[in-house]
Design a protein around this nucleic acid. Structure first.
Length: 636
RNA sequence: GCGCUUGUAGCUCAGCUGGAUAGAGCAACGGACUACGAAUCCGUAGGUCGGGCGUUCGAAUCGCUCCAGGCGCACCA
């Protein structure tokens, strides 16, 4: 029979060495006083190796970055563990002997940091002195801005959201929005200057479809006259276009046309095509209709963006950028990167790079999708002088983005290497992919409303905030509903496809946003009580609280890892790292809370210590959640 | 066909830059509120890490191969 781990939340962080190339980009190396424990142990071990084995320690495999230091598994004695196997062969010593020698030296040379060691098989387990942990706690427990780092000169733009203006936002957009926003915040917190941008796909045949349908069927109705939110209003006409089109196609097929012919020749499609041409020719009536309908959509989008907390430093509009890039095509021809075929179309040959020949300009001289992106990249650089440019785009476009970057590199654009496709997987339902035609698309506004309703029901049921006024209640429901939704979509590795189970999403227990929010509210309740009772800020006292108890230490050790969690999230551009971490923090606190009394601690010093732990926990939770775009309530 | 990608407990996911006996949440079952907030906590049960071969002191993790799913390879965007 298998044994369960007793420690319910041992966060087994590996603390791998971050590549050297990463540091200049983050900051200068962390300052010693802000350095976490693993980054302190590393040079000490390295030094010990050099002292003990001067001849061998300079050989490959002995560098600081090659050391594997992991958190000690709970079933063994110790806090952090050095893996010895990699030295064994080179030094021709048994792991036991090696571990003993290194352990002895470390304790002798750094008694303030290490108090004990043991060697089991090839692992050297080191016990880190309590004062290190309590020192960390005292230095940080009151820091409400924990995790924020000094600025550095890098400029980054993050493009995300990027909707079409012919239909409302759905679940997929939400993943995109939450991801982009969160990654931008993570970059900011770690010191970068970040600009958020969006590209609004506001032109093209799809836009004309909803316009045509509105002209034909709306009878002059508007969002105002119907009370329907603008983006939904326009989206309804886009859907209606599809319905009408289908009818016409069926009719034409009965008359003997092939499916392709029928789809092309259906009158409503012809009308849309004509409208597109008129639009491109600047036909005033079409333009003004287009402006009017897009205006409705933007009104709706803005409402949703405001609700979900998405914000942008600059919006680009495809209608204003779709002609960009033609100059780049000329430039590319001049540089010999592109070539023109006899029919006049322009191509790039990427077969040497394992890709295909790609068209960059049609034979009629009009641009294709990639042409616009070339132009937009250039324009963004002109305006922002970015060092890195993130594109939050679904993984369907991996190939496209690869090509984009490669072309820019071949054109020797200075910004080409800084282009990074933050690719994310589709959101699916348990029944499979969302499909417009089958009506299985989960609308963003709908799901948020539904979650607010659940938040309200649950809150009323529990009756803990009966004294809240209507405004406070509304804010609380917003906080909980969006917290649940954002956490649900961000807790999974962005690269992976994910399944959105509606039933799970309204569950506020376990690995969820509300669980963490609840933990925060609970801590705040204790801290409020303490302040009322004493009317004092927390003191800084480190006298006589005795050795740290396992639950106290476990939580401090976990909190101490916050900075390396941020490093990892930044390195991987991955908010889920933070989501998983903050969940562990909340869970570990809840266990701590159950086992140990704070207010009625064994001694005043213990009480002080635990209040500090509680305070730091609340700050780390708030700070982590803020990076995910999730608010944490004082009460709920 | 070629390229990319995914496969871990009934379900949803961690762990994947190789390290000790593979972890959570949900669902199931059983417990804990006359002491800091039970939206909580504790326990039980549940895994040939898709299959095979290889590299290694050590493989869920790396390589090869097979199987199964997804995406892409438009003069669409």
């Amino acid at each position: 029979m298998k044994k369960r781990q007793t420690s319910n939340s041992h966060n087994h962080i590996q603390s791998k060495q971050i590549p050297d190339s990463f540091w200049p980009f983050v900051n200068s190396q962390p300052k010693p006083d802000r350095m976490n424990i693993v980054n302190r142990i590393r040079p000490l071990v390295s030094k010990a190796l050099q002292e003990l084995y001067p001849g061998d320690a300079s050989t490959p495999g002995f560098a600081e970055k090659d050391l594997t230091i992991a958190q000690t598994k709970p079933e063994f004695e110790g806090d952090y563990t050095l893996v010895l196997f990699s030295f064994v062969k080179q030094l021709k010593k048994s792991p036991e002997q090696l571990g003993k020698e290194i352990g002895e030296l470390l304790i002798k040379s750094s008694p303030e940091l290490f108090t004990a060691y043991n060697v089991i098989k090839g692992f050297l387990n080191l016990k880190v002195a309590d004062p290190y942990w309590t020192g960390f706690l005292q230095a940080n427990f009151a820091d409400k801005r924990i995790g924020i780092r000094p600025s550095n000169p890098h400029r980054i733009i993050v493009e995300y959201s990027s909707p079409n203006t012919n239909k409302p936002l759905h679940l997929g957009h939400l993943r995109n929005n939450f991801l982009g926003w969160s990654v931008a915040e993570i970059l900011k917190t770690t010191g970068h200057t970040v600009f958020k941008t969006a590209i609004l796909n506001d032109r093209g045949i799809h836009i004309c479809k909803s316009m045509v349908a509105w002209v034909l069927f709306a009878g002059g109705a508007t969002p105002d006259s119907t009370g329907i939110k603008g983006d939904h209003f326009v989206g309804d006409y886009y859907v209606q276009f599809g319905v009408e089109h289908k009818k016409e196609v069926e009719k034409l097929m009965l008359e003997g046309l092939s499916k392709e012919e029928a789809e092309q020749q259906a009158p409503i499609m012809q009308a849309a095509q004509k409208m597109l041409v008129d639009w491109e020719n600047g036909e005033p009536e079409v333009k003004s209709l287009w402006e009017k309908m897009n205006g409705w959509v933007y009104e709706g989008f803005n409402e949703t963006y405001k609700k979900i907390g998405s914000d942008f430093d600059k919006n680009y509009f495809e209608s204003q950028t779709y002609l960009l890039g033609k100059e780049i095509v000329e430039e590319g021809i001049a540089k010999g990167v592109f070539f023109r075929k006899p029919d006049g179309s322009v191509w790039i040959d990427l077969t040497a790079d394992g890709l295909d020949e790609k068209l960059v300009l049609r034979k009629d001289g009009t641009s294709v999708y990639i042409t616009q992106d070339l132009g937009l990249a250039d324009k963004k650089y002109e305006e922002f002088q970015y060092d890195q440019s993130f594109y939050v785009i679904a993984d369907e476009q991996n190939y496209h983005m690869k090509v984009l970057k490669l072309i820019l590199q071949k054109l020797q654009k200075p910004y080409a290497d800084g282009i990074y496709h933050l690719s994310y997987g589709l959101v699916e339902l348990p029944s499979g992919r969302m499909k417009t035609r089958e009506g299985t698309v989960v609308d963003a506004d709908d799901i948020i409303e539904e979650l607010k309703l659940v938040a309200r029901q649950k809150t009323e049921e529990l009756g803990k905030v009966k004294d809240f006024n209507p405004g406070e209640l509304k804010e609380l429901y917003d906080t909980i509903a969006l917290g649940a939704l954002k956490f649900f979509l961000l807790r999974v590795d962005p690269k992976k496809r994910m399944v959105f189970n509606p039933e799970e999403s309204i569950d506020f227990h376990g690995f969820t946003g509300p669980f963490i929010q609840y933990t925060h509210a609970r801590i705040k309740s204790i801290l409020r009580k303490q302040e009322e009772a004493r009317n004092l800020e927390l003191g800084i006292g480190d006298q006589g609280h005795g050795p740290l108890l396992p639950k106290e230490k476990e939580l401090i050790v976990l909190l101490e890892q916050y900075s390396s969690v941020l490093d990892q999230a930044l390195l991987e551009h991955n908010p889920s790292v933070i989501a998983i971490y903050v969940f562990n923090v909340a869970k570990t606190f809840n266990t701590f809370y159950t086992e140990l009394s704070i207010m009625n601690a064994e001694s005043p010093d213990k009480k002080e210590l635990r209040l500090q732990i509680a305070s730091l926990t609340a700050n780390v939770i708030a700070s982590s959640m803020a990076l995910l775009g999730i608010r944490v309530p004082e009460r709920m």
